[in-house]
Design a protein around this nucleic acid. Sequence first.
DNA 1: ATACTCGCTTCGGAAATCAAAGCGACAGCT
DNA 2: AGCTGTCGCTTTGATTTCCGAAGCGAGTAT
Lengths: 117, 117
Amino acid sequence: MAPTRHDLENCARGDAALTRAFTLLGKRWSGLLLGSLGAGPAGFRELSRAIDGVSDSVLSDRLAELTKAGLIARRVEEGPPVTVSYELTESGRALIPALDQISRWAEEHLPAPDELC
Amino acid sequence: MAPTRHDLENCARGDAALTRAFTLLGKRWSGLLLGSLGAGPAGFRELSRAIDGVSDSVLSDRLAELTKAGLIARRVEEGPPVTVSYELTESGRALIPALDQISRWAEEHLPAPDELC
DNA sequence: ATACTCGCTTCGGAAATCAAAGCGACAGCT
DNA sequence: AGCTGTCGCTTTGATTTCCGAAGCGAGTAT
């Protein structure tokens, strides 16, 4: 295969930072996961219930990704019983204002889905 | 089982608006596409070049989705030659500040990928 | 006439995501 | 001691999404 200049083109790219951000946020559930944790620490099962529709396997993947990226931290509380909780790191918390803004934007500009509650 | 019905949980769930937002933004390339258009109108080919890595088929899908959601508009300029350009609607423009904030966040909190340029 | 570019669409195959089941460790009954 | 349930995952196999490459019709350039 010819060495695509893919690598070279990467440089002059529009907004590199935005690209980096959406490597994480552009994946399904990442944003919502962070949003959920914005409300405070939570355990695995708690998150899987809070974020309706996500499967355990993907939730597990996302938690690993975001942990690796340094946005969330996994804390094991020695018991008994032993419990696991995930929480935002400082980096993660720094993103919350942006998510809030997106949330506010959605309220204003995204079709209101018949308030059933 | 406790009387916690799923229905109840649905209501008080995290943030419905954020969920709506990430139905769009949580898909690959959506965020970057909006970011690109934030710099001004652009044609299909222009976008496909600006957003490195996206395939024509997916770009086409995303443009359709975001157009349907009312974030971008497809304008056909009668020629000759006939040209097509996509641009942000007001709703779309309203999201740009949030994207900028995310971009700034990424610069601060996301691993600087060795400036190769 | 030949060879481009543009704005797509179509066609496989590869990757992401899904629901469901299972597992080990523990807790709460009885 | 059993039985049942919760928690934090992982595994399995099917479905959905995404990708790269090719193609197409229309127009432009040489």
